[in-house]
Design a protein around this nucleic acid. Structure first.
Lengths: 345, 345
DNA sequence: CTGTTAGCGCATTCAC
DNA sequence: GTGAATGCGCTAACAG
């Protein structure tokens, strides 16, 4: 474990350290003979370059900092995977910072002050490490403008927004529009919706898509078919019961996340309503368990991998001083499973 | 965004760069007056130290490399979270490498050659970045001896093993022993088990625990109560049916993962067997969905966070040249939910 | 094609 | 209590 450096190699191979550097980086042509000799010594001495020194000199770290609000929240790992996918192909490295928000502030992520210090620290550390840029991965889509200051370094937000910076999001409105269209094409005319909390951006956007589809297909807009949930299983259970107790219940429900959809499934079972024979259900998020439920539920898959990949690509453009490309917005895709069928009537 | 360095500060504050370094690191006493002046200039110029340069000089990066076989596999994020937990408290940084094994080689993780190149690359990169040590997070407990060579740098494996290095694992045998004891204490005497693939270490260990408990409690050892599954939902479904068709079916089943337990639940439903009235079930892993099933299933929670935390702690000892501590093995804990009840008879 | 040399930004010895 | 000087390991002019 002796630390062999470039100069050791140079000595052993009877060349200058510059030459070694050249063969190492291919920066310049080196006579084949010389090159082989150097390479052999490198092999023999088991030399490993020191990126730290290289970075200091070249002022390039080839490293980007990823700030994840919480790696244990379902959307984050897939996004990281997408980031890695792109990074691998472009010889970039990742320094990961995990804010551990879920554990530290629970559901109070709306209260920015509660975790500003963590975020600011993370940025400081990353800046000190001379990252070329940063990606910030939220655990809930919301505006985090002003949370951090990257001192001019490029940053891309994903799964959340910031007003003066680029952010990569999926198309919520389109997704729920597509879901309703799918139900319509299956023959459904009374389509209910169970939303998430209405102060959340995705809820609004998804509702817009629902409303737009209802309008375009000239379906009756009935307020009693619209239920406001809170993303939790119990609200799905409760609201579905309300829906099923209507004098004219819906034949299909668009539920804005898979967790509430579990509640919907339970309500249906309790009421003796068959899914999908009597009631069709579409969930949102493609949570892993949605495939384990009975029936397996049809759900809108979030393009998480693509969001990570795309964030990285856009960031790289910023780092290279190019324009943020007129990126197309990642689209959700409907996973057809067993919770949707044509209505009986 | 001018790059202000230590020498800028020195000039503005009329001191030498050495002095600035002293106040920055508290390496030596500096007259209060001078110190304040320096601090003020640092503030004004918004100076951020350059860790790269610092590391080059001090030969310490305070960074450890984490090699995750795949961040999208359920056990990994929690382990990373534990690592971060410890790292945060000790001012350590994490460079994350994601091998993306699941995506790249699917279930062929037994075939080491299929991904050796990725692993070796990861280690090279980390070594070049001068990490102080590494943690390797597996996606399935197995022996990965010889996969990588860290050139003498300390490494700790978790959720997998390597023969000549430290590895942090949870106590599989104890866990399943505890599960059986729990069932016994609830009054069960005919306790079946559905294992995972028997070439997997956890299956063996968990079976040992089952066997030990059966023996100690002097329960009849009946081979027909032992079913070998493959970790997949379908095997849980199929094997549970077999169990329920026995002339004298079990009153409880220990299922070695939650995914197969979903199959068990389905089989019971198809057979009209009530859970937990007619059949008690204990799963393994505490997968998120185990709380969404109907009934919510009682399961063995893996101490993932602790494994990450503990890996980091042990690694730090190695880095500091201390002995790997006689670490106690992280224990699983049984999460009591709704899938276990006393047997009817 | 190859060698010499000057730093990158900072910590640290050694003088004062 | 403070400063001047040295070098960490490497890259990239600049000279041959």
């Amino acid at each position: 474990m002796e630390k062999v450096g470039i100069k050791e190699i140079a000595a052993q191979a009877n060349v200058s350290i510059a030459t070694v550097s050249y063969v190492l980086n291919g920066t310049r042509n080196v006579r084949l003979n010389t090159k082989e000799r150097v390479l052999r010594v490198i092999e023999e001495l088991n030399y490993k370059p020191n990126d730290i020194a290289k970075s200091l000199k070249s002022k390039k770290t080839n490293t980007i900092g990823v700030i994840a609000e919480d790696v244990t929240v379902f959307n984050v790992p897939e996004i990281i995977d997408g980031i890695n996918d792109y990074a691998d192909r472009h010889d970039l490295h990742i320094v990961l910072t995990n804010l551990r928000l879920h554990r530290r502030v629970g559901h109070h992520y709306a209260d920015v002050e509660a975790y500003r210090k963590y975020a600011v620290n993370a940025v400081s550390d990353l800046l000190a490490k001379q990252v070329e840029g940063m990606i910030y991965i939220g655990i809930h889509p919301r505006d985090v403008t002003g949370l951090i200051d990257t001192q001019g370094k490029p940053i891309v937000y994903t799964y959340c927004y910031a007003q003066n910076d680029l952010s990569i999001q999926y198309n919520d409105e389109q997704a729920s529009y597509d879901a309703v269209r799918y139900l319509f094409n299956k023959g459904h005319r009374r389509i209910a919706v169970i939303t998430g909390l209405m102060d959340s951006i995705p809820s609004r956007l998804r509702f817009n898509g629902y409303y737009k589809a209802i309008t375009e297909y000239e379906l009756p807009f009935e307020p009693q078919l619209i239920k406001v949930g809170d993303w939790g299983l119990d609200s799905g259970l409760r609201l579905t019961k309300e829906l099923l107790e209507l004098s004219e219940p819906p034949t299909a429900i668009l539920v804005m996340n898979d967790v509430m959809a579990v509640g919907t499934l339970r309500a249906a079972r309790e009421k003796g309503v068959g899914v999908p024979e009597d009631l069709s259900i579409i969930g949102f998020d493609n949570r892993e368990f949605s495939d384990y439920l009975n029936p397996r539920i049809t759900t809108m898959a979030l393009p998480l991998h693509e969001m990570g990949y795309s964030s990285m690509r856009s960031l790289l453009r910023l780092v290279n001083g190019e324009d943020a490309d007129p990126e197309q917005v990642p689209q959700c895709v409907l996973l057809e499973r067993d919770s949707v069928a044509p209505p009986k009537r």
